[in-house]
């Protein structure tokens, strides 16, 4: 099973400069673990501890086939062979 994951510029230090890498997993959590196995350190940039588990970092956007995963189960979102995953850091900020 191969799922293409598009990596944003700021995370390409973990992928040897690659803009896209293959990973696998039937959920987003599994996919992130698969990314971590090949690109150590990347997981911590995507998720953070929350209670007894983890959750997607607030200012990281992940899309599965163009859908923001926050609307389709977040880390529990399901994946199938051939799906396309895009990771983008939020563009955000402000005076507060």
């Amino acid at each position: 099973m191969a799922i293409e994951v598009r990596i944003p510029t700021i995370l390409r230090t973990y992928t040897g400069g690659e803009k896209a890498v293959d990973a696998d997993g039937s959920t987003l959590t599994a996919l992130i673990d698969s990314l971590e196995a090949n690109h150590p350190g990347i997981k911590d940039r995507l998720v953070e501890d929350k209670g007894n588990g983890i959750e997607l970092r607030r200012f990281v956007n992940v899309y599965i086939n163009d859908e923001d995963v926050r609307f389709i189960g977040s880390l529990e979102a399901t994946l199938a062979d051939g799906d396309q995953v895009v990771i983008l850091p939020a563009v955000a900020g402000g005076a507060r």
Binding site: N61, Y63, V86, A90, A92, G93, A95
Partner: peptide, 22 residues
């Protein structure tokens, strides 16, 4: 871009707009 936060002290692109932009 539209400031999806609509705030005087914060801005954030809408996630759909962000994907389209990239």
């Amino acid at each position: 871009m539209v400031n999806a936060a609509g705030s005087p002290t914060f801005y954030e692109y809408d996630s759909t707009d962000l994907l389209q932009l990239y």
